Amino acid sequence: MYLLRAETERTGIKSPSGILAALSVSNQVISVFGPTLGGVLIGLGGWHLIFAINVPLSLACLVLGALRLPKRVRAGHENVAPPSADVPGMLLFAGSLTAFMLFLTSPGRTHWYLPVIGAFAGGVFVRRELACGGPFIDLRVLSGNTPLLATYARQLLAYTVSYAFMYGYSQWLQEGRGLGPERAGLLLLPMSLMAIGVTVLTGHHAQVRGKLFVGGSAQLIGV
C-alpha cells in the first residue's frame, strides 16, 4: 500500500483498481496453497517444517526488495534526517498484545496477571500515541471518523468468519472427523477458490457496495 501511494504521488496517476485486484488475487492464491502445503509439510516432517519454510522465503523477499523496490529520493532535502520510529509505542503495543495472547492461550486464575499487564500496557500505549508527534498508530484519526470505524468493523467481522473457518474447521476435521492434516488442508481449497472468484468478479469495479454484497453473500453461502 505504501508503494502504491508513493508511486501515485510520484507520477500523479491514481492507482487503478486492477492493481489492487491483482494484489488481492495474489494473496488469495497464497491462501489457496497455504493450508494444503501446510498439511503436506506437517505430514512429511511435522509442524517444524511450516516454520522452517519461511526462512528461505523471507531471505528471497529481502533480496528481491533490495533489488526491485524503488529508492525514495527527497529532492532538495538530502540532508534532512528521516523521522524517528516510535519504538516505545511499538514495544507497548507488542507487549499488550503478547500478554493478552498468552492469557488466551492458557486461560486460568493462576494467570490473572497477564490481562492486567495487557490492559496496563494498552492504556499507556493509548495515552502515548495520543500525545506523540509521530505515533506508531495514529489513534486520533479514529475520533469521529464513522466511515473508517465502520470499515474496521466490517473487516473484523469478515476476518472472524474466515479465521474461524480456516482454523476451527480444520481442527474439527482432524479431531472430530479423524482426517489427517493433508486431507484437512485439501478441504480448505473451496474457501480460497471462492475468494479468488469474488475478487476476479468484483475487483475491477469501483463500487464498494457491490463488492461488500458479493463477498458477504459468498461467506454466508460458505458457512
Rank of each mutant, 00 (worst) to 15 (best):
residue 1 M to Y: 07
residue 5 R to M: 14
residue 6 A to N: 08
residue 6 A to Q: 11
residue 9 E to I: 04
residue 15 S to G: 07
residue 17 S to F: 09
residue 17 S to Y: 03
residue 19 I to S: 11
residue 20 L to R: 10
residue 22 A to Q: 06
residue 26 S to M: 08
residue 27 N to R: 04
residue 36 T to A: 15
residue 50 I to M: 00
residue 50 I to K: 00
residue 51 F to Y: 15
residue 52 A to C: 10
residue 53 I to S: 08
residue 55 V to P: 00
residue 67 L to E: 06
residue 74 R to D: 09
residue 74 R to F: 07
residue 76 G to P: 04
residue 77 H to C: 12
residue 79 N to D: 15
residue 80 V to G: 01
residue 81 A to W: 04
residue 87 V to A: 07
residue 90 M to N: 05
residue 90 M to Q: 03
residue 91 L to E: 02
residue 91 L to H: 04
residue 95 G to Y: 01
residue 96 S to W: 01
residue 97 L to C: 10
residue 97 L to P: 00
residue 100 F to N: 04
residue 102 L to D: 03
residue 106 S to T: 12
residue 108 G to R: 04
residue 109 R to S: 06
residue 111 H to D: 06
residue 114 L to C: 02
residue 119 A to L: 12
residue 121 A to M: 11
residue 125 F to P: 11
residue 127 R to G: 07
residue 129 E to P: 05
residue 132 C to H: 15
residue 134 G to T: 12
residue 135 P to E: 08
residue 144 G to M: 06
residue 146 T to L: 11
residue 152 Y to Q: 10
residue 154 R to S: 12
residue 156 L to Q: 13
residue 160 T to Q: 10
residue 160 T to N: 10
residue 161 V to R: 06
residue 162 S to L: 15
residue 163 Y to E: 10
residue 164 A to M: 15
residue 170 S to C: 08
residue 171 Q to V: 09
residue 171 Q to H: 15
residue 172 W to T: 06
residue 172 W to V: 08
residue 175 E to C: 09
residue 185 G to V: 02
residue 189 L to D: 03
residue 190 P to G: 06
residue 190 P to K: 10
residue 191 M to H: 11
residue 191 M to K: 02
residue 193 L to F: 05
residue 203 G to M: 04
residue 204 H to K: 11
residue 205 H to V: 02
residue 209 R to N: 13
residue 210 G to Q: 09
residue 217 S to F: 15
residue 220 L to I: 15
